[in-house]
Write a protein that binds this DNA or RNA. Structure first.
Length: 224
DNA sequence: GCATTAACAGCCG
DNA sequence: CGGCTGTTAATGC
């Protein structure tokens, strides 16, 4: 069972719940740690839990039959996912890999459905989240073909600052250039050059092991 | 050509 | 020291 403070910290949606609903969510959620490179789940897994990122950085990706891996979303602390799989009682359609030491919150299926049945606030959150992810995945359909390395990096970086998925207003993220490369599907060296280009355009500010977003709109639309 | 790997020096925590 | 960064050289598609 997760502590009240911890749940509030890692789940923005929990603050809209009634006290009774919050207690139920808290009782049905626990924390699990994953090392760098560890798979949180594979394609085809039957996941019994709804999942949130408490600390760290995960990559949600699919692998095509030809063996190419494409990132569907980078997930940092505060992200929640897997509701589609839970609701439809399907197998997972994507892989989930920890890009660094990470802590993951697992909500029991039964608890998820209880909230789904009882909480208007929880349903509002789910609808907004579905909407955002849909928009994100539609963007993905155009993106792989059209964009070069810098464009892919810009998109993946912008995803990590989606204001609906990450309601806190933090503009700075602790992330290495290697991790950004893993997310965008490019080498560390290319990530380095791409970041420099984005910084030159005034879209981001690059620090040691961190990136600050200066213009999220233009970053999300960057096509270079 | 463009991107990737390998390699290395410099820098920071 | 250990991890991250910036750059160059060699290699591959």
């Amino acid at each position: 069972m997760i502590s009240e403070d911890e749940l509030r910290r890692i789940a923005a949606w929990s603050n809209d719940l009634t006290p009774e609903e919050f207690e139920e969510a808290r009782r049905g959620t626990s924390i699990k740690a994953y090392g760098k490179g560890a798979h949180v789940c594979h394609v085809g897994d039957r996941l019994e839990s709804w999942t949130g990122v408490a600390d760290g950085l995960l990559k949600m990706s699919t692998t095509s039959r030809s063996g190419k891996s494409a990132t569907l979303a980078g997930l940092r602390g505060g992200a929640w996912f897997g509701e589609g799989t839970i609701i439809k009682n399907e197998a997972r359609r994507y892989d989930l890999v920890a890009l660094r030491e990470s802590k993951v919150a697992l909500m029991r299926r039964q608890t998820f459905f209880w909230l789904f049945e009882h909480s208007a606030a929880f349903n509002r959150f789910l609808v907004h989240q579905f909407n955002e992810r849909l928009a994100q995945f539609i963007g993905l359909a155009e993106y792989d073909r059209m964009l070069g390395a810098t464009g892919r990096l810009a998109r993946n970086l912008a995803w990590l600052f989606n204001p609906i998925l990450y309601p806190n207003n933090d503009r700075t993220l602790t992330i290495s250039q290697e991790e950004l490369g893993l997310l965008a599907g490019i080498s560390r060296q290319m990530a380095n050059q791409s970041l420099a280009k984005l910084a030159e355009l005034g879209l981001v500010e690059v620090g040691h092991n961190e990136v600050t977003i200066l213009d999220l709109e233009r970053l999300a639309r960057y096509e270079g």
